[in-house]
Simulated scan of single mutants.
Amino acid sequence: MADRNVLTASDVTIEYPAHSVSSAFTAVKGFTLVIEPGEIVGLVGSSGSGKSTLAQVASGQAAIRGSKENSPRIIGGSLDVLGFQMRGLKRANLNKLTLGVGYVAQDAGSNLTSNMTVAELVAEPLFLRDKRFNRQEAGLKAATLVDALLLPVGTMLKQPHELSSGQRQRVAIARGLILDPVLLIADEPTAGVDVSVRGAVVDVIAGLQRSRGASALIVSHDLDALGRAVDRIAVIHEGVVVGLGPIDEVLGDPRHPYVAGLARETYADEDESDEGDEMDEAGGDDDDASAEAEYEANEDADSARAEARREENR
């Protein structure tokens, strides 16, 4: 695996086939990207840009659902993931593919089994693969991931309804990481997660994958959350890659109007942040205190944990 790209997409076109009264729709067209072993790549784009469709196809989730659910399919180009050609992938190879590819859907946190504890939910994929897996080892592995994702260890005994939406999403991320995937494909993994914790959560995902020499494709519309975690970003617009490279280089020298718009938004946000810092130094702003008071109590505690984790890593 060390000398093979984890993912190679060449001029990939993906469509949703005609269904009922709907005609066929092309969601991705001419997509090209390479992810090397150990590389963390962010896939950035607006809603409807095709990034989630690509994540479903590359992870094998579209093939798992099959034609019964009008799933997207590759109609042009080639997509190789862990050595498997995704176009026309056979069921036997699909089962092998999913052993090495982890997937976190953007609504994964809202689809957790309601009557299971967090400990059971995170560890479940281990037992689905091997019913005789050591339970003590599974519990320790699950607890380690829960802690790494800035959740209190006491979360292990809770059920999904006892958690905030952001905490449920992080439980889903832990579940996606429990099998040590060679490639993790995470579609908006910070959806519902408090803004003060998003960057730290993405940092954890990237750090865990890097520590094992594994890779990740992190789909997001939030450049701030990707921050320093990714090695490169691929910007997708209307199904086509319009920017590719290290985040600072892509934004610093935009070659497409959509990328230029992203750059303006990003730098404007940074300017506003700098102005806010200056106001804090001059005496602060009461609006910030009011906003902080509106955060959920669970997310407040997680924010403190995120800050402590950042201090440890400095």
Results as ranks from 00 to 15, higher is better:
residue 1 M to V: 15
residue 2 A to N: 15
residue 3 D to C: 01
residue 6 V to I: 11
residue 8 T to S: 12
residue 9 A to N: 02
residue 12 V to N: 02
residue 16 Y to N: 01
residue 17 P to A: 04
residue 24 A to V: 07
residue 27 A to R: 03
residue 32 T to K: 01
residue 32 T to M: 06
residue 35 I to N: 00
residue 38 G to R: 06
residue 40 I to L: 04
residue 42 G to Q: 04
residue 44 V to R: 03
residue 47 S to Q: 14
residue 51 K to T: 02
residue 52 S to E: 00
residue 57 V to G: 06
residue 57 V to I: 04
residue 58 A to V: 11
residue 61 Q to R: 02
residue 62 A to M: 06
residue 65 R to S: 01
residue 68 K to N: 07
residue 72 P to A: 08
residue 74 I to N: 02
residue 77 G to I: 00
residue 79 L to K: 00
residue 79 L to P: 00
residue 80 D to T: 05
residue 83 G to S: 10
residue 84 F to S: 08
residue 86 M to K: 07
residue 89 L to C: 02
residue 90 K to E: 09
residue 101 V to Q: 06
residue 104 V to Q: 03
residue 106 Q to Y: 12
residue 110 S to Q: 15
residue 113 T to A: 13
residue 114 S to T: 07
residue 123 A to H: 04
residue 125 P to K: 02
residue 134 N to S: 12
residue 136 Q to S: 11
residue 137 E to P: 08
residue 140 L to C: 04
residue 141 K to M: 09
residue 145 L to N: 05
residue 146 V to P: 08
residue 146 V to R: 02
residue 157 L to A: 13
residue 158 K to I: 00
residue 164 S to V: 10
residue 164 S to C: 13
residue 164 S to P: 10
residue 165 S to D: 14
residue 181 P to F: 03
residue 182 V to H: 05
residue 182 V to Q: 14
residue 183 L to A: 08
residue 187 D to W: 05
residue 188 E to V: 08
residue 190 T to K: 10
residue 196 S to M: 14
residue 197 V to W: 03
residue 198 R to M: 13
residue 198 R to S: 11
residue 201 V to E: 10
residue 202 V to H: 10
residue 203 D to M: 13
residue 204 V to L: 12
residue 210 R to V: 08
residue 218 I to A: 09
residue 221 H to A: 14
residue 228 R to E: 12
residue 229 A to V: 14
residue 236 I to M: 09
residue 237 H to K: 02
residue 237 H to E: 01
residue 238 E to G: 03
residue 238 E to T: 10
residue 239 G to S: 02
residue 242 V to S: 01
residue 245 G to Q: 08
residue 246 P to D: 09
residue 246 P to S: 05
residue 248 D to A: 15
residue 255 R to V: 03
residue 258 Y to I: 05
residue 261 G to D: 05
residue 269 D to M: 15
residue 274 D to T: 11
residue 275 E to T: 09
residue 290 S to Q: 05
residue 291 A to C: 00
residue 291 A to K: 11
residue 291 A to Y: 13
residue 291 A to H: 06
residue 294 E to C: 05
residue 295 Y to D: 13
residue 295 Y to G: 08
residue 296 E to P: 11
residue 298 N to D: 08
residue 298 N to C: 07
residue 298 N to S: 13
residue 298 N to M: 15
residue 298 N to Y: 08
residue 299 E to A: 14
residue 301 A to D: 14
residue 304 A to N: 15
residue 306 A to Q: 09
residue 311 E to A: 13
residue 312 E to P: 11
